[in-house]
Design a protein around this nucleic acid. Sequence first.
RNA 1: GGAGGCGGCUGGGGGGUCGCGGCCGGCCGGCGUCCGCGCUCGCGCGAGGGCGUCGGGCGGCUGAGGAAAGUCCGAACUCCAUCGGGCAGGGGGGUGGGUAACGCCCACCGUCCGCGAGGACCGGGAAAGUGCCACAGAAACGACACCGCCGAUGGCCCGGCGGCGCCGGCUUCGCGGCUGGCGUGCCGGGAUCAGGCAAGGGUGAAAUGGUGCGGCAAGAGCGCACCGCGGCCGUGGUGACACGGCCGGCCGGGUAAACCCCCCCCGGAGCAAGGCCCCGUAGGAAGGGAGGCGCGGCCCGCGCCGUUUGACCUUCGGGUAGGUUGCUUGAGGCGGGCGGCAACGUCCGUCCCAGAGAAAUGACCUCCCCCGCCCGCCGCCACGCGCGGAGGGCGGGACAGAAUUCGGCUUACAGGCCGCCUCCCCGC
RNA 2: GCGGCCAUAGUUCAGAGGUAGAACGUCAGCUUCCCAAGCUGAAUGUCGAGGGUUCAAUUCCCUCUGGCCGCU
Length: 134
Amino acid sequence: MTAPQPAPSADAPRGAAFRPHERLRRKRDFDAAYAQGRKRRDDTLLLVVRPNGLPHSRLGVVVSKKAHGKRAVDRNRVKRVVREAFRLHKHALRGGLDIVCIPHAPRRGPVTCQAVARSLLRLVGRPSQVTTDH
RNA sequence: GGAGGCGGCUGGGGGGUCGCGGCCGGCCGGCGUCCGCGCUCGCGCGAGGGCGUCGGGCGGCUGAGGAAAGUCCGAACUCCAUCGGGCAGGGGGGUGGGUAACGCCCACCGUCCGCGAGGACCGGGAAAGUGCCACAGAAACGACACCGCCGAUGGCCCGGCGGCGCCGGCUUCGCGGCUGGCGUGCCGGGAUCAGGCAAGGGUGAAAUGGUGCGGCAAGAGCGCACCGCGGCCGUGGUGACACGGCCGGCCGGGUAAACCCCCCCCGGAGCAAGGCCCCGUAGGAAGGGAGGCGCGGCCCGCGCCGUUUGACCUUCGGGUAGGUUGCUUGAGGCGGGCGGCAACGUCCGUCCCAGAGAAAUGACCUCCCCCGCCCGCCGCCACGCGCGGAGGGCGGGACAGAAUUCGGCUUACAGGCCGCCUCCCCGC
RNA sequence: GCGGCCAUAGUUCAGAGGUAGAACGUCAGCUUCCCAAGCUGAAUGUCGAGGGUUCAAUUCCCUCUGGCCGCU
């Protein structure tokens, strides 16, 4: 296997949990990220990244009604997909960051877990993990 | 067999890997506190236990909908000290029931639609008053004129007849006969006047009830029959109303989802309600100030604060987007008995069934089920690339995600299942 | 989550139960050597969608759709 492939996994590895302390839960967390963070983007995601001084990273997801549709079920699906991608690949991402993840409006089909994972690895992937994925 | 009506139910199923929220029970670790024990004169140190709290990990149970949606009604609950009057304002509107309540539900009535099963209806009042009814049309709220029809009756004009009266001419001795004029009478005509009439008049959404017969000068509910309308009476029904009889000839419309009248209902805000805790150069400064605030459109009533201790208002300054509670046992679900046509009520048994908070039910794989398309194979064949069967490949399986909680309504929705009923065709 | 408001020409807005208007903009002509300004004239709407009341609805009523605002 070559560079950052997302785990194609029918059977996902154990230990890839996503706990409440790994989330951005307060408005001030988001505000701090917007005020001090750096933006990184590709054609799938827009990330706002800020070092948080913790041993682990924290993730917040922003899904607007304008970009992802009026129905709550669609927006919730996008959030779950992003969290799932983060959960399965956080070991391959740089630690100690607050990450606000804003998916772009989908063109051609829904937001998929694999596409989000690919973007995360490209934008905030851990450099030492590039060749040792498996 | 075909077409349709109504009601109810369901809303893919099994397995695997990795995850998420909540509750419960152990385990490990940190911190706080308390207890007693050992060493020590003591400060203190060490091992242990209880409680609380935080974090990690393990096990068990559990975790979206019929609409969770829209927020259109109604309530519960909480706060507004109390909710008490009146006005204003808003809402509802056949009748009788159901319900905690409702604008909801059930049954019935009426009108309209459908061959029918059935369906639709914001369905009180227009002789209490006001407003509006464009264009067209003779006329639109009054009806009266206009066009038009008639002109029976009384006049007028024209023609005819000959009855009568008067006057005259011719003839006759005369009676009489013929003839002319006037008046009168009768008949016919004119539609000229008085007058009669409301049938008809391209219109229009709507024109003083409709159809038919009689009647008349022409007509007209003028008369009659049926229908429609109104009134009275009787019968049935709790009632809306229905049926029957008699009477009135019917002096008139529409619109109240226009104002309005009648009857009934309604205080306001909303779980970001509200309670507790934590934090807080804090009970700050300046100016105005005798009244102000509480309830929110107004008034009254009532209560509270204030005019020495300064209520209240304006500006400046300061603090807040933390925790916890409210938070899920409820007009509750399921099963059965009884009452009721039904909505529903009642009794008994049984069950506990999501409680998040940048917001949990997800991701991926696989098998089955259903549907559509394509491929080749087999069988039937009234050969129509039609039907049936096993198989392979591809695609699809709706609407949609709890946020204080219920009762409704409305809107969205693939497919499937069940029950009752109607109409048409065929066979026996 | 709860509560409130709006939708009419390309844009900003009027409007009343009876064939829908203003301003700006657009287009054409005149004027100018040319442009601007000025003058003259013209084009234009399923009145957000569906249903109901009415003879008649953009207006009145109901249901949707889209958009905007507020909350300690």
